[in-house]
């Protein structure tokens, strides 16, 4: 694609949001090793592979109660 520069105004905020959320979620998964179901490895993969949906599922259904 030759006009990549055209897409930068879109890609930069999108990638920042995606990466930011992914990194934030991975840190949360690693720091709170108690989950309603599944284990640490599963959640790290889920959170990293499925953009937006992975973290959403983790924070809604996967995370434990411990603060």
């Amino acid at each position: 694609m030759n006009q990549l520069a055209d897409y930068l105004p879109f890609l930069i905020p999108l990638v920042v949001a995606q990466l930011g959320l992914a990194i934030f979620s991975v840190i949360h998964v690693l720091k709170h090793p108690q989950y309603r179901f599944g284990n640490k490895a599963l959640w790290v993969v889920v959170v990293l592979v499925f953009q937006f949906i992975g973290p959403a599922v983790y924070f809604l259904f996967g995370r434990g109660d411990q603060e």
Partner: peptide, 18 residues
């Protein structure tokens, strides 16, 4: 504190950009 608000805002922001 359960990060749900952050999550929603990021997702809807992404919708807005996409």
């Amino acid at each position: 504190r359960t990060y749900k608000l952050l999550l929603m805002f990021l997702i809807f922001f992404a919708f807005g950009v996409m």
